[in-house]
Amino acid sequence: YKIYPYDSLIVTNSISVKLPKDVDRTRLERHLSPEEFQEVFGMSIEEFDRLALWKRNDLKKKALLF
């Protein structure tokens, strides 16, 4: 996945969300650098992957990456 800054990946309720063209809309968190991922989620990507799907989705919603 290509890395993008968190600010360019957050999704708000506005209709005209302009995400970069090559971003996987269903896995926005994968486009964060490991350092920024840790900062946003408070855990590593590996720890995040071990969580239940509902928990990952809940965290993504709170981080505006859903």
Rank of each mutant, 00 (worst) to 15 (best):
P20N: 05
L65I: 05
F48G: 00
F66R: 04
D7K: 14
L53N: 09
N13A: 12
N57D: 11
R27Y: 08
L28G: 00
E46K: 14
L51D: 01
F41Y: 01
Q38R: 13
L59A: 05
V11I: 14
S8A: 14
V11N: 10
I3H: 07
T26Q: 13
S33W: 03
F48W: 07
I45L: 13
V40R: 05
D49E: 11
A52E: 14
V17T: 14
L53M: 13
V17K: 11
I10W: 05
N57T: 10
T12Y: 15
D7I: 15
G42D: 10
L51F: 06
K62G: 09
K18N: 15
K21H: 15
S16P: 11
F48S: 00
Y6K: 03
P20K: 03
P5L: 04
K60Q: 02
V23I: 09
F37S: 00
L65H: 01
Q38G: 13
K60R: 07
E46D: 13
S16V: 10
Q38P: 04
Y4M: 05
D7V: 15
F41E: 00
Y6S: 01
H31Q: 01
F66K: 04
S33T: 06
S33I: 05
E39L: 15
R30G: 04
R30Y: 06
I15Q: 14
Y1R: 08
L64I: 04
K55A: 10
I3W: 07
D22A: 04
K60G: 01
L51T: 04
Y4N: 01
F37H: 03
D24Y: 06
E47K: 09
R30S: 04
D58N: 11
S33E: 04
L64D: 09
T12L: 14
L65G: 02
I3T: 09
R50E: 13
L59Y: 06
E29M: 00
S8G: 04
L19E: 05
K61C: 09
E47W: 07
F66E: 07
A52W: 06
E46W: 10
K55Y: 10
I45W: 09
L19I: 08
K21A: 15
A63K: 09
V17H: 15
K18A: 15
R27H: 15
Y6W: 04
R56Y: 02
V17S: 15
L32P: 00
F48E: 00
K55F: 09
E29K: 00
L65M: 05
Y4D: 01
R56M: 06
S8K: 13
K18P: 14
L53T: 12
V11R: 07
